[in-house]
Design a protein around this nucleic acid. Structure first.
Length: 241
DNA sequence: GCGACAG
DNA sequence: ATCTTGTCGC
């Protein structure tokens, strides 16, 4: 997989035009190979934002032990940050680094859960949708807050959900993944339906609010984990001295 | 023109 | 996203 830089280094106006074009290529019906591995992806930043840190966690999917998934591989990939955060253009800022992490994976997953929106986006191309198109893999957007769309209040119990709408279209779901905790915004990215997206998120839910794939990727990409890793490196170097 | 606004 | 400790509650 080679990344054509011109595809990512775009001025906002061009990026927006490309999103509208790419959104038409999305498949919102299930086209998923038998799932044996699921990946979670998230991004973090270091050096006052100058370095982008992409984290991908590969998990083995076994219906017999779910939602206890086995971590098969963890990748952290760093690159210089290429552009600032602009609402609606998140994928152009974060996907290049994410691709670097996926390239280092020894096994590609059949399904990816991304921290961010799928089609619940003003032009229907959130980061999960964009990544899915690029990798040609099924993706689900699992966001911790809303970017776009309207919705009614959602029930208080785990599993309750209400549709997230944009005009007459349903673009995702507001899902209560834990009792009385702020809901998740789930939307299909590519090669998957909303119904199936919700099934997979529910299936991968452990005790916490986030499904295991994004929870672990979140943790690996976090500032807290960066500090922990730095400390481990320091102690290893010290013991070698 | 005035807000809203994933991470 | 990130800056940041303790603390209220199930």
């Amino acid at each position: 997989m080679k990344t054509a830089l011109h595809e990512w280094n775009l001025a906002p106006k061009e990026a927006i035009a490309l999103q509208k074009e790419l959104a038409q290529q999305l498949e919102l019906t299930d086209r998923i190979d038998p799932v044996t591995h699921i990946a979670g992806m998230d991004i973090g930043f270091e050096d006052n934002g100058d370095t982008t840190r992409a984290a991908v966690v590969l998990l083995r999917w076994d219906p017999a032990t779910a939602p206890d998934l086995t971590v098969v591989e963890q990748i952290v990939h760093r690159e210089p940050t290429r552009m600032p955060y602009i609402p609606g253009l998140l994928s152009f800022r974060e996907i290049p680094a994410a691709l670097g992490a996926f390239e280092k994976l020894s096994v590609m997953p059949e399904l990816i859960m991304v921290d961010g929106q799928g089609i619940a986006h003003p032009r229907r191309l959130g980061i999960a949708a964009h990544l899915g198109l690029w990798l040609d893999l099924p993706t689900i957007g699992v966001a911790k807050s809303r970017l776009y769309g309207k919705h009614d209040e959602v029930g208080e119990e785990r599993g309750d959900w209400v549709p997230l709408r944009a005009g007459r279209d349903t673009i995702g779901a507001v899902l209560r993944s834990r009792n009385k905790v702020k809901p998740l915004f789930v939307s299909p990215g590519h090669r998957i339906s909303l119904e199936t997206s919700l099934e997979w998120v529910m299936r991968c839910l452990g005790r916490t609010k986030l499904p295991e794939p994004t929870r672990l990727a979140d943790r690996l990409a976090s500032r807290r984990d960066q500090r922990k890793q730095a400390a481990i490196q320091a102690s290893e170097n010290a013991s070698v001295d």
